[in-house]
Amino acid sequence: MKVRIEVTYKTPKKTEIFFKSEEMTIGEALLISDDLEKTGRAKNLTFIDTYDTTWKRKDLQKYMDDLETEPHDITVYFDGGFNIEDRKSGLGCSIYYDQNGKSMRLRKNAAVEELASNNEAEYAALHLALQELDLLGVHHIPVLFIGDSQVVINQLNDEWPTMEPSLNDWAERIEKKIEQMGISPTFEVISRKDNREADRLATQALKGTEVTSNTERK
């Protein structure tokens, strides 16, 4: 979550000026608010989050303290593969996150048979990642989703139209799940080369190798 600061500043000559900051991390906002309050000239200092919710400083600090015990700073890599010969699909995702002062990596893959194209497999891989985030208890925080499917990323970013009914159904399912979890998503496309880990998990699933792991990153 990011917040902006709104504050009324009173000069030594009693002139009052209202300021509104750019969005920043909670840690940055708390640090800047400390400096402003030390001047003794800051009045009505409030924090506004992305959802236009107003926070008091003590509540924002408590949120920060609680956040340490929950998954945060989350980046998700996903990929789907489709074998046209046997109509099987492999799904893979890697989830990087911090929790309780540790940096963690969750890897998960799955083999499915009910899909009809590589694009569907890509959407299904993203949905698999969302299910894993749900199991982790992720909610109401920003999440970065990274994949090598321009179709999926551009459609979810509303840059490309979703013409195929099956893909439209997947997009709606993804958006409904994201809304249900309260996630603020960012979607980013990368090359397949840079998505090697998720690609490898999807390939392993196609070959019948199941992967489920959640380990600390050293």
Rank of each mutant, 00 (worst) to 15 (best):
G208C: 10
G81E: 12
V211Q: 00
A198F: 08
N154S: 12
V76D: 01
M104I: 09
L128P: 07
S94Y: 01
N195Q: 01
I153C: 03
C93F: 11
E175D: 07
L106Q: 05
E188R: 15
K88I: 00
K88N: 05
N168E: 13
A198G: 00
N83D: 14
T186R: 14
T69K: 14
E120T: 04
M104K: 15
E120G: 08
A124R: 12
S117I: 08
P142R: 10
K108N: 10
L144G: 00
E164F: 10
K176I: 01
I74L: 04
A129K: 11
G80W: 12
S149K: 07
E164Q: 15
Y96P: 00
Q150I: 01
I190D: 00
R173Y: 09
I190M: 07
V152P: 05
G208F: 09
S149D: 03
A116K: 14
F78T: 05
K193T: 02
L135H: 13
V189M: 11
D158I: 04
L106E: 02
E68G: 11
Q155G: 06
L106T: 02
E85T: 14
R196Q: 12
D158W: 10
F145I: 04
T203C: 00
R107A: 08
M104S: 03
I95K: 08
D73C: 12
I190Q: 04
I153M: 13
S89E: 07
H127A: 03
P142L: 11
L130N: 03
N154Q: 14
I153T: 01
L201M: 05
A124E: 13
E68S: 05
D98P: 00
A171M: 14
D199K: 09
R192H: 10
N109I: 13
T203A: 11
K193W: 01
L135A: 15
D194M: 07
A121K: 12
K207Q: 14
E159R: 14
L67R: 13
N83Y: 11
V152C: 08
Q155S: 04
L67P: 01
N195R: 02
N100R: 11
L91P: 09
G101Y: 09
R200K: 14
S117Q: 05
L115M: 08
W160R: 06
T186Q: 13
Y77K: 04
N109E: 09
D79Q: 08
R105K: 15
V112G: 05
N118K: 10
